[in-house]
């Protein structure tokens, strides 16, 4: 996916998201704030993973999109179970935890590691391959040589 020409739009969206999240926080609208927070992080990673303005489709399919879904679902389920069991002890647990908090453990914490960290390991070449790095160093060397030659 080519993001050349879209980079400025993404950065402007990032700035607007920071503003929106702050305002939502003032008014205790925490759920929309959390979903926008996931989008904010996602956009930063899209910019970070791009090489020569191209974002790897593979890296988007895994880990980025599954990570975003896992976290959004985690917040949704945490809130749902917090609302269901407000002021009362839940009538079931998940792994021994309050159902609301269990999603923080299973999806936010472990799910975050299993998607982002693991996905980063297995698709590391989509982020920075040996040839990308060697090519970068070669071009830097060429520029340095050119500058020395010109002196």
């Amino acid at each position: 996916m080519d993001i050349q020409g879209k980079r400025t739009g993404i950065i402007v969206t990032i700035a607007l998201l920071w503003g929106a999240i702050s305002v939502l926080g003032w008014y205790e609208m925490y759920m929309p704030g959390l979903y926008l927070g996931v989008l904010l992080m996602f956009l930063h990673m899209v910019l970070g993973v791009s090489v020569n303005h191209k974002v790897s489709r593979k890296f988007l399919i895994f880990p980025l999109i599954p990570w975003a879904v896992v976290w959004a679902v985690s917040f949704y389920l945490s809130n749902m179970h917090a609302n269901i069991f407000t002021g009362v002890m839940p009538n079931f647990t998940i792994l021994g935890f309050h159902p609301s908090f269990s999603w923080t453990i299973i999806l936010y914490w472990i799910g975050g590691m299993l998607t982002l960290t693991w996905g980063f390991m297995i698709y590391k070449d989509e982020w920075l391959s040996s040839s990308d790095w060697d090519e970068f160093k070669r071009k830097v060397e060429l520029i340095d040589q050119g500058q020395e030659g010109g002196m």
Partner: peptide, 10 residues
């Protein structure tokens, strides 16, 4: 804990 991978990706 996933923040480290996110930081390095970015």
């Amino acid at each position: 804990s996933a923040a480290f991978a996110m930081a390095y990706i970015i």
